[in-house]
Design a protein around this nucleic acid. Structure first.
Lengths: 207, 207
DNA sequence: ACGGTTGTGTACTGAACTGTCAAAAACCTA
DNA sequence: TAGGTTTTTGACAGTTCAGTACACAACCGT
């Protein structure tokens, strides 16, 4: 028996995420968020408790999408594991993949991992942001490590390699391409980096 | 026949760099810079043309230090090239090395590449910053690629590998550890990533 | 020692920003 | 259809910020 809210929570948080992505946290004013989401000042404070609240909840939403998509993209039968890894790597260097059918963003720099960007801007002074960003990273390393193990079982990756170390390395490379993308390098360059990384994966010793 | 300036330009720019590194560009006010450098507002505007001018000149100074140190650390006889690469990689993942004897910074997150951090925060909207950051990256990739070529001549790296691709990949990994460091991961974890990367370098096919 | 020149410190201005408040609007239920 | 509840809207106060202007201090050559 009260007025229902006129906006979709996830939709608003996603718009705020885009804004934070392009102008950074400190570079975004509450009015910017207001314009990007269509919500008035008062509604923002009532629903999300202001700028910092919007950030935390937007990051939580991002984390949820990540935890939904990445494991799904990497899980599957052992046989195709290496190829799934390959595909994920190639898509990831062009922007965090969050849906199977979403094409890479037109602007690579704006497609960098949201959590990573916020962690780099605020991580030293905002432990909560740092923790959330690290959670995003953990989800990804876990999913990749599982996929590496699957590839090892199917004989496509050296069984002596440590799957966790390999997962950390691959994710570090992916995050590194966020930075290289921010430098303005071409899509072809990023693809080349991804292929080089993939080519160096330790294969089993045949003989 | 005029009053000389009472500050050392490089010293001031370095202090400003530290401030930008810890609080970001948009998170730093002119008063913050003033406090960090000891210069008054007027002097800052007269000598560096305000906040943005300080950033550009601080980045230029950073670029100069980078171009001074990195090639020196990686150049040398072909024989020790692989080991120099190894040493550089290990030091780089703990913060941009700018002098041979400087120990890694106490706070890893504050030791990330200055240029990379600024590029990620401002790169999309500030082409000048993007260009300067990319220049920093180019200096490093060139130096690393040269060292890879040296290691190939001495028979420590597969001569069939493309040294430029390898250099891009290694630098991408190093920039990736800036992000992983911002997540709050331990020094040991970063070392482990660097060692994993080094272990995967393509060795020549013996026999 | 003095004057010209340049650096330094501080106060000021107009704009922008954050967080809050109260009135109006929208909705549901009875 | 009327009342109660919650959202929405717009405006407001206090603060902070970037950039400027002006007065003062320091130095050097003569």
């Amino acid at each position: 028996m009260a007025r229902p809210r006129s906006f979709d929570r996830d939709h608003v948080l996603h718009a705020a995420e885009r804004q934070f992505r392009t102008t950074g946290y400190n570079g975004t004013s509450v009015d910017d968020i207001s314009a990007a989401t269509g919500l008035g000042r008062g509604s923002l404070y009532a629903a999300f408790d202001g700028k910092h609240g919007v950030l935390l909840q937007a990051m939580a939403g991002y984390f949820a999408r990540l935890g939904e998509f990445a494991p799904k993209a990497l899980a599957g039968p052992d046989e195709g594991a290496l190829e799934r890894l390959h595909g994920y790597l190639l898509r990831a260097v062009h922007g965090v993949p969050l849906a199977a059918d979403v094409p890479p963003a037109p602007d690579r720099a704006a497609a960098a991992c949201f959590a990573a960007k916020m962690a780099l801007e605020l991580g030293t002074s905002d432990p909560e942001v740092q923790r959330l960003a690290n959670d995003c990273f953990s989800v990804l390393t876990t999913a990749v490590a599982d996929c590496v193990r699957a590839a090892q079982r199917s004989g496509d990756i050296d069984p002596d390699a440590d799957p966790d170390d390999l997962a950390y390395l691959l994710l570090t490379i992916i995050r590194g391409t966020d930075v290289v993308g921010a430098y303005g390098h071409s899509r072809a360059r990023l693809t080349s980096i991804a292929e080089s990384a993939f080519a160096l994966l330790p294969r089993p010793h045949h003989r």
